[in-house]
Structure formats: structure tokens, C-alpha cells
């Protein structure tokens, strides 16, 4: 049950504008959602769904629950926050002024971020819940009753 994130299978492409590429592949004249963002912006996101809930997984390493602001307006989910540059223990107090030191690699995101995604329609934002553990935030958004799949009974004539 754990560790099967690869179920999130999507067309493989390392190009930045993944979303429009995938769209163009299937619908040559389609346009990208105005809110779609280049793949790989911080924090990274996965979105999944079951019949009654939409799940958003936010990969936000180094951020505590207090440091990530999650808000929903209409069908747009926004993530706001700030992640400081790498610092050693005991340097935190110095705030912005950290020591200059030679870097060999600097790949991790640092600074302010704001990311929005459009949620599928019919999410009940009042009942949304978010939980954080180990730099991963899981947001559960239950679907409203009227958009849940319903079974239609067939009556005998």
C-alpha cells in the first residue's frame, strides 16, 4: 500500500512545459490552462482522486505545518510560504545574514514561493483537511454529494 507513487503514471517528458506538451499530443489545438505551471516548481505536487475525495500531496521538505499556508478560493488551491537557504544549527538566530561559504552544489529551492492549482470542480472546500509529516503535506478535499458517481438502478419494465 505504501510507496506506490508510481501509480501516478503520466506521459514521460522532462521538458519544462509538460502540461501543454501532453495536451498538444492528444489534442493538437488545445490550449493550456492559464493557471498551469511549469513542471517542477517548488513545492512539487501530486494530485489523485477517488470516487469521493480529491487528494493533493505537497512535497515541501524543510517546511513545518506553520510555515506553509494553504488556502482555497473557489476551485483554486494556493500554497504560500518561504523556505530559508541552507543554514547550520546555531546560525538560525542570525536571520538573513549567513556566512559566505563555497558551494559545490546549490540545487535546493530557497526563497518565497506561491503556487496555485485548479482543483477539479465540485470539491467541498468547507470540509478540506490537511496533515503534514516529514516534509509532505496531504490535503484531502471531499467531493460534494452531487458530483459523486451514482449508480442508476434499472427498473424492470
Amino acid at each position: 500500500m505504501f510507496g506506490d507513487l508510481w501509480r501516478f503514471e503520466t506521459p514521460k517528458s522532462s521538458e519544462l512545459d509538460w502540461f501543454s506538451q501532453a495536451l498538444n499530443e492528444f489534442f493538437p489545438r488545445a490550449t493550456a490552462d492559464i493557471r498551469s505551471m511549469p513542471r517542477g516548481a517548488f513545492p512539487m505536487l501530486n494530485v489523485g482522486r477517488t470516487d469521493d475525495t480529491v487528494f493533493v500531496y505537497v512535497f515541501a521538505p524543510g517546511l513545518t505545518a506553520e510555515e506553509l499556508e494553504v488556502s482555497i478560493q473557489d476551485d483554486v488551491l494556493t500554497l504560500l510560504g518561504r523556505r530559508g537557504a541552507a543554514s547550520l544549527e546555531g546560525e538560525q538566530q542570525q536571520g538573513e545574514q549567513h556566512k559566505q561559504r563555497p558551494y559545490y552544489r546549490q540545487e535546493r529551492f530557497a526563497g518565497e514561493f506561491a503556487r496555485s492549482i485548479t482543483l477539479p470542480e465540485g470539491v467541498d472546500t468547507e470540509r478540506a483537511e490537511a496533515r503534514a509529516h516529514d516534509g509532505l503535506v496531504e490535503i484531502r478535499l471531499p467531493k460534494r454529494e452531487e458530483v459523486k458517481p451514482r449508480r442508476v438502478e434499472i427498473k424492470a419494465a
Partner: peptide, 11 residues
Amino acid sequence: VSATYAEIQGN
């Protein structure tokens, strides 16, 4: 859970 969008594709 079925995937709608994924940037992290690995476990």
C-alpha cells in the same frame, strides 16, 4: 486512488 497529475513519479 487514481492519478490526475504527478510531478513526483517515484517511490
